[in-house]
Design a protein around this nucleic acid. Sequence first.
DNA 1: GCGACAG
DNA 2: ATCTTGTCGC
Length: 233
Amino acid sequence: MELQPEVGRWDVTPTEAVALQRRLVEQVVLRPPPGLKVERVAGADISTEKGRDTGFGGLVVLDAATLVPVAQAGAAVTLTFPYVPGLLSFRELPIVAEAWKRLTVRPDVVIFDGQGTAHPRRMGIACHGGLLFGVPSIGCAKSLLVGTYGKLADARGATAPITHKGEVVGMAVRTRKGVQPVYVSPGHLMDLPTAVELVLKVSPKYREPETTRHAHRLVNALRRAGGEAAELE
DNA sequence: GCGACAG
DNA sequence: ATCTTGTCGC
């Protein structure tokens, strides 16, 4: 029998998952590696269907300078954990991890569709994923899980700190004028300023990062295809 | 006890 | 997240 590292344990109950997060959070590093150069950025996402128990996940790697896709990988995995606010990683990461194994091009940073430290236990999917893959990561969500923020200007680039229980856990970032902001927080091997800077860089035209948009399109295509071609690169 | 609640 | 049509605004 293989001894599974705790960061890769999915056979847990919701109660055990919470306890596991409290241990894993101690391993998260909220500081980018010295001299980090971001040449390739990846987006991760999954897609599910109401009737089925199969989840489709994928990753798309973009050239950071041009935002053009340079590699991608997908996977179809049976869902084993329900959606529980605060425990999203236990539902989605098993699927993204399978796609990660099939990804031949390694990105310098991975942007997840969800929270990083802006989480009740500071252990959102971006933190968990960054630890699992051993790569710098960022959480960029479309809505808040916890925390509040004040007024922010309507111009693109405007920001407002997200606070929770007395600490800054993330930043509301307006990536497009007159549109609802996205919520950015560091995952692993990352800090808030760097995360905000990168998200703005990869979101030049639309509300969500190009990484997320590409990943979303990929997983939806896989789901509609029924999973027959989930191994495609 | 009541309300909130990433995707 | 997914289920779904049209509609308001730049």
